[in-house]
Simulated assay, not measured.
Amino acid sequence: MLHSHQLRGAFKPSDTIIAKKQFDEHHPLFHQVVVFTGVIQSMSRQDACQIVADFGGINGNSVTKQTTLLVVGNPDHRTPTNQKSSKELKAEKLSSQGQEINIISENEFIFMINLTQAKTEQ
């Protein structure tokens, strides 16, 4: 289901619809406040956000004091090559101030999802 503003092309991760009512409380995404930065190569940003929601995570639009996980994709056209995005820089700053925030790559995110799916299929 799309919201009216999504039809106009303005996707906001926090608007992802949570379809499930019960979640695996032991899943690494459960209750994580997740923000994506950069270009996600393996799927659309909307699909990535839906996966987070389906595992009981919360999607954030930007890095805040509530963020617990930042998934870093490839730099987009706005970020010069070999430089960190503003979201990554902010996450590092908050981490250095004592906030518990994990910064992982897209590959680590995919591994986390695949590992969990493999366990549920056994």
Results as ranks from 00 to 15, higher is better:
Ser96Glu: 06
Arg45Val: 03
Ala48Gly: 10
Thr68Tyr: 03
Val39Arg: 10
Thr68Asn: 06
Leu29His: 07
Asn102Glu: 08
Pro80Arg: 05
Thr64Ser: 14
Gly38Asn: 15
Gly60Tyr: 04
Thr64Tyr: 02
Gln46Pro: 08
Met43Phe: 14
His77Gln: 15
His77Val: 15
Thr67Arg: 01
Asn59Ala: 09
Lys93Tyr: 07
Thr37Val: 05
Cys49Ser: 12
Leu69Asn: 06
Ala91Thr: 02
Ala48Ser: 13
Asn102Gly: 02
Ile40Tyr: 08
Thr64Leu: 00
Asp24Gln: 07
Ser44Phe: 05
Ser42Pro: 05
His31Ala: 06
Arg78Met: 11
Ser105Cys: 12
Asn59Cys: 15
Thr68Phe: 02
Asn74Leu: 14
Gln66Met: 06
Ser95Phe: 05
Gln97Cys: 10
His31Cys: 06
Ser96Gly: 04
Leu69His: 03
Thr64Pro: 00
Asn102Tyr: 01
Glu92Ser: 04
Ile58Glu: 07
Gly98His: 04
Ile51Met: 14
Glu106Leu: 12
Val63Pro: 01
Lys87Ile: 03
Ser42Phe: 12
Val34Ser: 03
Leu69Tyr: 03
His31Ile: 02
Gln50Cys: 06
Lys93Gln: 09
Ser105Gly: 11
Val52Ala: 08
Val39Cys: 08
Gly57Arg: 02
Glu100Pro: 02
Gln50Asp: 11
Glu92Gln: 10
Asp47Ala: 13
Ile40Pro: 07
Gly73Asp: 10
Leu89Cys: 05
Thr81Tyr: 05
Met43Lys: 11
Arg78Gln: 13
Ser62Asn: 13
Gln32Gly: 01
Thr68Lys: 01
Val33Cys: 10
Gln99Cys: 03
Thr37Phe: 02
Phe30Asn: 04
His26Ala: 09
Ser105Asp: 12
Asn59Ile: 12
Ser95Leu: 09
Lys93Val: 04
Gln32Trp: 00
Ser86Asp: 00
Ser105Tyr: 12
Val35Phe: 00
Thr68Leu: 06
Gly56Arg: 14
Arg45Phe: 02
Glu108Gly: 14
Phe55His: 14
Leu94Thr: 00
Asp24Glu: 10
Glu88Thr: 03
Asp76Tyr: 04
Ser62Met: 12
Gly38Phe: 13
Ile103Thr: 10
His31Phe: 01
Gly57Ser: 07
Thr79Val: 15
Glu108Asn: 15
Leu94Asp: 00
His26Ser: 11
Gly38Trp: 12
Ile101Gly: 00
